[in-house]
Design a protein around this nucleic acid. Structure first.
Lengths: 156, 156
DNA sequence: TTCCCTGCAAAGGTTTTGCAATTAA
DNA sequence: TTAATTGCAAAACCTTTGCAGGGAA
């Protein structure tokens, strides 16, 4: 945790930005809720416990800045608000998502299934892939009363 | 074209809705720009030629209604506006998209690459797949000065 | 000092809603 | 007839921006 904050601090400083108390509080909220795909409003509510004086605009600016630094992934699941996801700094692409249409849960699959297709895209479609996004909508294990599958614990 | 409108008319009527002139004009615009992923504003501009008196709210309401009937797919590519895509009524899932980060073009891949993964999801992740979404971001053939690949003409 | 950063309030852009009038079935 | 539908304007939302004050190097 601390080392991850330290790393983010360095990323900020290397671009001339500062890790202010507000930014640090925001990052901590994101780290503590890493699985959750929080919206800006969600982050704002949570970060107010740590830094009650913070303004919503600051949260938006921080999330925007961290997205530009590729610390975060800004995402849109179609419910009208942007959501943010901490990025594994070693993985080139984002995770795949399992979105439950019943309870709204979003689980992540940490494997990358798309490598072979990206090769095909370059060769057959003349398309140079920089990133991808793969989401599945359906019914999650909670809503069909099955235990948590091992597969979802693999990488976290 | 006419038979597709007739079919949509029947879908509407079976749920107690009417195919008004405004709705028909909107559907025609969507059919004529099937490859284009139009925003509500785009549709509004185009539909005004056919029905100049139409209001933007009516376009929004029509798009929302058609999405509920699964005639359209409401989609969000992250630029702050919803975009709409006619749905093949015989295909269970949406298309895959190639989104160019340079010129903004969105091409479609008509094949479904994900069947084998969906089986894995049900078995290993206890996730019952209803739909999916696969988008690639990168540089399209136009922006890298290559001809249009045959692969993009396959199914249309 | 100097530049970055903040909170607040105002503005921006997209989408939804209330309402009285109109219209398709 | 009558329930659905429309256009307009206002409202609701999420997000961004302008600005004056504050703070770290």
């Amino acid at each position: 945790m601390e080392t991850r904050i330290e790393k983010i601090k360095q990323q900020l400083q290397s671009q001339g930005y500062k890790l202010t108390p507000q930014r640090e509080a925001t990052v901590r909220v994101l780290l503590e809720n890493e699985q959750d795909h929080l919206s800006a409003e969600d982050v704002f509510m949570l970060v107010k416990d740590k830094a009650p004086e913070i303004g919503l605009a600051t949260v938006y600016r921080t999330l925007e800045l961290l997205s530009e630094l590729h610390v975060l992934e800004k995402m849109n699941f179609g419910d009208g608000v942007a959501r943010y996801d901490l990025r594994d700094d070693n993985s080139r692409h984002h995770h795949h998502h399992l979105i439950c249409v019943q309870c709204g849960a979003v689980d992540e699959i940490m494997e990358d299934w798309l490598g072979p297709f990206e090769e095909r895209l370059e060769q057959e479609f003349y398309f140079q892939v920089l990133d991808h996004r793969l989401d599945f909508q359906g019914i999650c294990y909670r809503c069909s009363d099955r235990g948590k599958p091992d597969s979802l614990n693999k990488s976290h």
